[in-house]
Nucleic acid binder design. Structure first.
Lengths: 260, 260
DNA sequence: TTATGCAACAATGTCTGACATTGTAAAGTC
DNA sequence: GACTTTACAATGTCAGACATTGTTGCATAA
């Protein structure tokens, strides 16, 4: 019995040692983004660690101190990133104990090929929810928007296209453009929901995939969308929106396929 | 011209001063929870500050430093709490600028001062958002539901009707019935969103109005809805759902009119 | 041998102070 | 009056320290 216990113990020990090795291996490349928010990068690195170490629900993550030194960032950054995951129910933190993986956001076990699939699934899910919402918002905007709302929509659209054509970062402008449509709908609840979905989409989209790819096809059409809404033409608006979603979904599917 | 400018400026200043006063007033009581997580308490205090100072979407929150000293906690705690709200889309943070309110936290009547009209507007808003979502969910359920899902939907429907006919409280059963449809759709995001809206609706609906009134017309039709979904008949499902929403909106409108 | 209690350690929670980066606004210049 | 520059303020990040609490190993007693 003792031998059994000891074998078990040494097994665990060996496993832990090996796990620590792969974790250090996975965390080799430092995070290097002096400007901007590191939260997302920390989470990406953490995801990679989880993949490589094959951590499953219930397993303990490396301590905050270890993560900080491994990733080359401060403990504050680690904590902020972990707080986000904690709020989302992905991890559970216990004072004195440690941080454990709690969620099956990834479904069944976290493995290399699954992760991208899951992330892309997340993309598709946000799109599936956004489609009916944005259609309804556009319908309401056509009915309820004032002329002032329309001018704002037009201005935001021009801003977006200008940034896009200049090759600059158009993410915020895209957000503001759609926001103008939500505001014009007259129902703030839509805005709240879609805003969250929009942010979630960009969180996932910005990280693992390159952004110009999708934009090449979906951004220019936004001009048509703005025109159709301003003209209060529901049929045209509907068609353009469906086309936009079709493009985006097509791109996401392609990316998913490529990454497999 | 100068005087106009100055008046405007002093107005803003006075406003800001008064706001600061009420904020300090609201933050009088220190946070005192030596054990556990302060994040939630910080958020509660923040919520109170927002209410008392009557901050609206787009307004700036006090700086992290101010909040820390006002609430008597460290800036780290403030930041962790704010990070949670940021992830939820409630606030927007900009380096160098500040933190602004991006969503209406106080949204559906935490306070009672006003007003049935507002609350009824809230009802209509949740309905307006739920209509496209529930339609899409039903469409997905028809496509994706397994036979087991269909059996669950049927069981929940029978449970609901039994309670309704027995004159007992059917609110939870109603919730479970719709939940079964969300689960059958295969996209958990829908479930999360609609669940919140469902709860918000019932929160408002249950309190000021008597519940049998609306139920008399909308509950029996749920049998038709379940049948249509189980038969995977999209046209029928769509028609029934639209009828249900039409009934509910009609009732809400009537109640709103009466209460005026 | 087994069980209990205690002490050392480790991990998260929090505070403080500091510096970096960046948006805003006032001041200065043409 | 319009533009540029500068100072300030607010968020982002890091480092160190201490508090609180769960875990583990060891010594002691039954």
């Amino acid at each position: 019995m003792n031998s059994g216990k000891m074998t078990e113990a040494s097994d665990r020990e060996r496993q832990a040692a090996s796990r620590e090795m792969v974790i250090r291996e996975a965390a080799k490349r430092r995070i290097s983004d002096p400007a901007g928010t590191r939260g997302q990068e920390v989470l990406n690195a953490l995801m990679e660690i989880i993949e490589v170490a094959n951590l499953k629900v219930g397993d303990r993550l490396p301590s905050e101190k270890e993560l900080a030194s491994s990733l080359g960032v401060g403990r504050s950054s680690i904590r902020e990133a972990l707080t986000a995951w904690q709020r989302m129910g992905i991890i559970v933190r216990n004072k004195g104990a440690g941080t454990r993986l709690a969620a099956d956001v990834t479904g069944n076990g976290i493995q290399k090929p699954v992760v991208i699939q899951v992330e892309a699934q997340g993309l598709m899910r946000t799109l599936a929810v956004r489609r009916p919402l944005e259609l309804e918002v556009a319908r309401l905007a056509i009915h309820n928007a004032t002329e002032k709302d329309m001018r704002i929509i037009n201005a935001r659209c021009e801003e977006l296209l200008a940034l896009y054509e200049a090759g600059e970062n158009w993410f915020d402008a895209d957000h503001r453009f759609h926001e103008a449509i939500y505001d014009a709908s007259g129902n703030p609840l839509f805005g709240q929901l879609i805003k969250q979905l929009h942010a979630a989409f960009h969180d996932i989209y910005q990280a693992p995939f390159d952004q110009p790819k999708m934009a090449d096809r979906s951004i220019p059409i936004h001009r048509d969308l703005a025109d159709a809404i301003i003209a209060r033409n529901w049929e045209k608006t509907k068609a353009v929106l469906i086309e936009i979603f079709s493009i985006v979904e097509d791109e996401v599917t392609k990316i998913l396929h490529e990454e497999q």
